[in-house]
Design a protein around this nucleic acid. Structure first.
Lengths: 152, 152
DNA sequence: AAATCAAAGGTCAGATATGGTCAAAGACAC
DNA sequence: GTGTCTTTGACCATATCTGACCTTTGATTT
């Protein structure tokens, strides 16, 4: 087994243990596997690229790091899938489950999730008669999900 | 985590606790974090510059100080002001103006702004009869604005 | 009032600590 | 033997940390 595979496996383990986020130090990793630092970049670019479903961020200088975040499904796919899964009516409980699922797939940040929930909360929709709330909720929900596809 | 990050965090806490104003003594801070005084200047210039939304004033000599003031109009104030300014009804055009104003005051990020607009768009509220849309829009709008106060 | 002193804070260049790129050499699978 | 994957190292970019030296301000001395 090549060193690169060992390094990749090690990173995978961290990702598994830490719920999809690994924060590494390039030099420490290189020392642990007795290789040059740039090999870490090689491993990351060949096995943890965005196409493989990961987001990589880093910082140089003292206290520097490399952070790898696993994105389970293609965010767009997951979100569109959710949009299509929503019926004409949507109760708050089900909506929360959808959001939770999307969050689990790292397809949305928590801030946006909170905003969506607040927009379709009972409180926000109070002016609407209870029989109609779930219909409006479904409409707003879909619209907001689609909105998240734009920016980012 | 680098020392500079710790120092920055410490200053942030003071700013939060003291409503946006922190008055520091360079030497005391340096001693507390066991670093040279000039590192305090480094932290301030890299993280509390005007571009980051802060005003820094200082005075030398006995009783000297460094005062950091958060200039970003207090987001809470601006947002609560907006919440209170919204009537029972709110048309999309007026809502957009409110959002634009909030954005101008750096009290919200663009992503959240887009989400809010999408939630109260004509499209999202289509299931509601036109006469009632502005009422629901006002309710959702306020609820979402209040939501933005939580995270961040 | 002028001179002097001590107590802050300011600047800046250099040292240190990380991470990034890329091309070439080496290893491996067919 | 050819093509792909891996490994290596020279050189680059950026963030942080440090210390020598400078400036401002208020208090003290003459």
């Amino acid at each position: 087994m090549a060193t690169s595979d060992l390094i990749a496996g090690f990173i995978q383990e961290i990702l598994d243990d830490a719920g999809g986020i690994a924060e590494l130090q390039r030099i420490s990793l290189a020392e642990r596997f007795d290789c040059v630092p740039s090999q870490i970049n090689y491993v990351i670019s060949t096995r943890f690229s965005p196409e493989h479903g990961y987001i990589v961020e880093s910082r140089r200088g003292g206290g520097g790091y490399i952070r790898i975040t696993r994105v389970r499904a293609d965010p767009r796919k997951l979100i569109m899938h959710t949009v299509n899964a929503v019926d004409d009516r949507l109760d708050l409980h089900t909506a929360a489950a959808f959001i939770s699922n999307i969050l689990g797939g790292n397809a949305m940040d928590e801030k946006s999730a909170n905003l969506i929930i607040s927009a379709i909360s009972e409180n926000a929709l109070r002016p609407i008669s209870p029989e109609h709330r779930d219909i409006v909720r479904a409409s707003i929900f879909k619209q907001m999900l689609i909105c998240t596809l734009n920016d980012n």
